[in-house]
Amino acid sequence: MKILLTGVNGQVGYELLRCLQGLGEIVACDRARLDLANLDQVRDAVRAVRPALIVNAAAYTAVDRAESEPELALRINAQAPGVMALQARDIGATLVHFSTDYVFDGAKDGPYVEGDRPRPLNVYGETKMLGEQAIVSSGIPHLILRTGWVYGMRGHNFLRTMLRLAAERDEVRVVADQVGAPTWCRTVAQTTAHILAQAQVGGPAWWRKHRGLYHLSAQGETSWAGFAEAIMQESGSPCRVVPIGTADYPAQARRPVNSRLDSSRLMQRFCQLPDWREALALCMR
């Protein structure tokens, strides 16, 4: 099986490149080789590679900057996945795409399930929602995996920011009234690879039965301040975490106060997901 993998320099894409080994011939694309902002390039790449599977781990993820670059975010997060889906339909390929908890407004009391209606608060969330819709409307066999609060030991993410600030300061002020589940990028990649291994065995019948949308999030929940405190504990840093409110940390883009995703559907069908704290400890070791 030939696999076209995008975004290999990103957090999830970097891990996917390793976790997907053995499932087929991987054609790995970073931004220099495949820029999702260039829709003609996306179309031509799929036609040239003619993969059996496209795994799209590339995205525009600068949430605040997206407010001032909506057209670019739309092209990368919505139009490019739509082009991939249409090209996949033409060549008989399947598609795995990653989305976000930011498609929701955070007003729900409990964790969000796949059937909850998206109501994004910001440009990033809106463009990711439109990307989901473009894939679904194409009618191709697909998996859309929503995750959130992704971190790892490389790239730009909350974990690395906290470790850097802890080395520079005695205390950090972190938002305490937004709740979610920090999810290690390797958890996302390993789970995806596990699911695709099952799909490879099951063939077209597997895709007919299991295609669709799933939430892929670590288990448990915490706030950003709670996440920061756990990072300090795991790293042995004496840096103190000062909880603050969202209103005390102004940002260009609004964030949902509730980013919890219910991953029961994925776990019932495919595999278990780790507790966020256990995964953090493993990541930092």
Score class of each variant (00 low, 15 high):
K2I: 12
L4D: 06
Q11K: 09
G13N: 02
L16C: 14
V27E: 13
A28F: 14
C29V: 04
R31I: 05
A32M: 08
A32Q: 06
R33P: 02
D40K: 12
A45G: 03
A45K: 01
I54T: 13
A62H: 12
D64H: 09
S68I: 15
P70T: 12
A73N: 13
Q79V: 03
P81N: 02
A85P: 09
Q87S: 07
A93V: 11
S99D: 04
F104I: 04
A107T: 14
G110V: 11
R117N: 05
M129F: 12
S137F: 12
G139S: 13
H142I: 12
R146C: 12
G148E: 04
R154G: 01
R160T: 10
M162S: 05
E171I: 01
V172H: 05
V172Y: 09
R173W: 13
V174L: 11
Q178E: 15
Q178S: 05
T183V: 09
T187L: 15
Q198G: 11
A199M: 09
V201M: 12
L216E: 02
S217Q: 10
S217Y: 00
M232L: 07
G236C: 07
S237C: 06
S237M: 02
V241N: 06
G245K: 15
P250A: 00
R255M: 06
R260G: 06
M267I: 00
Q268R: 06
P274E: 03
E278N: 10
A281H: 07
L282I: 13
